Amino acid sequence: MPTQPTQEIAVRSLADPGLLLTAWEEALAAPAPARTAVLLHRTGLAPDLDSALDLDVGQCAALATALHRAVYGPEVDGLVGCPACSELLEVHVHLPAADSGTAGPPGAEPAEARVGAHAVRAPTVRDLLAAADGPGDPRTVLLTRCVRRLDGRPFDPAALTPEEEALLDEAAESLTGDADALLRTLCPTCGAEVAAAHDMGAVLWDQVDAAAPALMAEVTALSRAFGWSEQAVLAMSPFRRHAYLSLAAAP
């Protein structure tokens, strides 16, 4: 039986101004847990939106990290509060080089870990959406969707002991890998150790959500100054666009 050809995914860059605005607009209209999935789909890192929503949180973070490095570079700056003295610290994270193999192919069967009488898998983006939008406690929704009994009987999250729930949490976290960019530093004020986790999907979205309005402001300025259409402005290279912006601002 002949093998099916592997589907080629054309990866596109958010450095393309037209794609940036399209991806930003679609992601802005989506629920917050799905925004990274929209960006991954629009840039071709997932073949379709359904595949992107079925990525587990570790896969999604790995692809978001790769996309951030490719478009915005490997450096991330942010603010974090010291848990001991509440001092607000500026933090700097150097993102690790992404290993494309850790993300796994979109549509692959999720890995499971056995914990006593249960099997647990890492939550997907679709699971996070269900937990955020559905009725009931979000944690209970995630447990119900991501845990099953090995004997085939219905799973009841309320029947878990605290020890079982902790072990299931630990196993799920191990399946996601490095879903967050981690930072450890010392507070210069009190000397306490500060550990911060950066949600890479949220970090990527913050970059896109800042870049798109800035680009639209440039389009607005050039349209007012020269009467050009959005399409004409976006077709310019950044160098030419900024040169015209300087001319428009000149007295």
Rank of each mutant, 00 (worst) to 15 (best):
G136K: 02
T124N: 00
D169P: 01
D133W: 13
L167G: 00
A166Q: 14
R121K: 05
A179F: 03
H118T: 03
P105T: 09
A166V: 08
D199Q: 10
P188L: 02
T185Y: 11
A171H: 05
D156W: 10
V120Q: 00
A195W: 08
R149S: 13
L143E: 04
R121M: 05
A132S: 14
L204Q: 01
A179L: 05
Y72H: 08
A132E: 15
R149A: 13
F155N: 01
V71R: 01
L143G: 02
L183C: 07
D169E: 14
G81T: 12
G191T: 04
E164L: 04
H68E: 12
E75D: 12
V141Q: 09
E163S: 07
P74I: 03
D156S: 07
F155V: 01
V125Q: 04
F155R: 00
G116N: 08
A97T: 15
E112L: 10
A103K: 04
V141Y: 08
P96T: 02
T185F: 11
V80E: 15
P138Y: 09
V125P: 00
G136C: 00
P162G: 02
D178Y: 06
R145H: 09
P96L: 10
T189R: 08
P123H: 05
L142S: 03
R148W: 11
G81R: 15
L67S: 07
A98M: 13
E75K: 03
M200L: 15
A103F: 12
A166Y: 10
S100H: 14
D137Q: 05
T161W: 01
V76D: 08
R148I: 12
G177I: 14
G104Y: 06
S86G: 04
A172S: 09
G191V: 08
E173V: 12
E164P: 00
T176Q: 14
V80F: 09
E87V: 08
C146M: 03
